[in-house]
């Protein structure tokens, strides 16, 4: 990859810049990456859908109209209607909320817990580190969809359980990222200095180390979110995610199975929504990696 002048001079740890300047710098770097900008815009559009879904959707997501069932896309129903005569477009718009609620909240929870584990494990090291890391290995030794299915199968797929399962699945990855940053920073002068000053461990961890772990953490979090979209949709498809009649993209696709030939739009539009959001988030996270960690090239 040819490094631009900017990436060659920028340091991964911006020091003497005000917060506004830093943000503007990141913004400029992001705009210089057209593909990442497109990804970010796609992500933001879906985020807005999730926030304002019920006001954007032209019909209620539960509004059935049997005479209008299985209609191909028209001006009244831009994405057509499903087997109950419900507006596919409205269900997709409102379904975005479910994806963000489950995947987003789950990811945020995973970030909070994973960061705590990673900080403690990397900073204190020793036996505690060893034990925590082995426990995380155990979580990683079970394929994520399998673990999600077993947990939801026994405790039942309520909204809270779904969020908790997403969080539990992603804690190990987040913790590992944070831990590796901590191990790297622990020996740096500014951390030593803070310790010699007599600062408490909590101060060193949260005020000195954590801010420097934020860029990789943000990148990892956006990656995890894009995986969680997949996971939540797959669970919905398998019937262990959001329960009907709530709108869910995976569930919508499952319902489209029997109408592949007579109503292909029932499959096409939810599939497109999933694909766009996953790819958009992926591109955004690639861009974030380049903007926030210019020293390290994409892997």
């Amino acid at each position: 990859m040819s490094a631009s002048v900017d990436t060659a001079t920028a340091t991964p740890v911006p020091t003497r810049r005000s917060r506004g300047e830093t943000l503007r710098l990141y913004g400029r770097r992001l705009l210089r990456q057209p593909i990442a900008t497109v990804g970010t815009v796609v992500f933001i559009i879906f985020l807005l859908m999730a926030l304002f879904g019920p006001w954007i959707a032209p019909y209620g997501f539960e509004e059935q109209s049997i005479p209008d069932r299985l209609q191909s896309p028209t001006l009244q129903h831009p994405f057509g209607t499903d087997n109950f005569g419900r507006d596919v477009f409205s269900r997709i718009v409102v379904g975005a909320r479910g994806i963000f609620l489950l995947g987003g909240t789950g990811t945020i929870l995973a970030v909070m817990m994973g960061t705590t584990v990673g900080l403690i494990s990397g900073y204190f090291g020793g036996l505690l580190d060893e034990i925590l890391m082995r426990l995380l290995d155990v979580l990683l030794s079970i394929p994520s969809l399998l673990l999600a299915l077993v947990l939801l199968g026994t405790v039942g797929p309520s909204l809270l359980n779904l969020i908790l399962v997403v969080a539990v699945l992603y804690i190990p990855m987040i913790a590992r990222v944070v831990r590796s940053v901590v191990l790297d920073l622990k020996t740096k002068e500014f951390v030593e200095a803070a310790r010699i000053r007599g600062e408490r461990d909590s101060y060193v961890l949260f005020r000195e180390i954590l801010p420097n772990a934020l860029p990789p953490l943000l990148v990892e979090a956006s990656m995890r979110f894009s995986y969680s979209i997949f996971l939540v949709a797959s669970l919905g498809f398998l019937g262990l995610g959001v329960q009907p009649p709530s709108p869910d993209w995976g569930l919508q696709i499952n319902e489209a199975r029997n109408y592949l030939e007579s109503a292909p739009w029932m499959l096409a539009f939810p599939a497109l929504a999933i694909s766009l959001l996953v790819v958009g988030t992926n591109l955004m996270s690639d861009g974030l990696r380049r903007v926030l960690q210019p020293g390290r090239e994409d892997s």
Binding site: F237, L267, V279
Partner: peptide, 18 residues
């Protein structure tokens, strides 16, 4: 490859069936 990364198995499977 980017497009396929965004498609879960149940979508590609249904597309292949269709």
């Amino acid at each position: 490859s980017l497009a396929f990364i965004g498609l879960p198995e149940f979508v590609t499977g249904l597309l292949l069936i269709a």
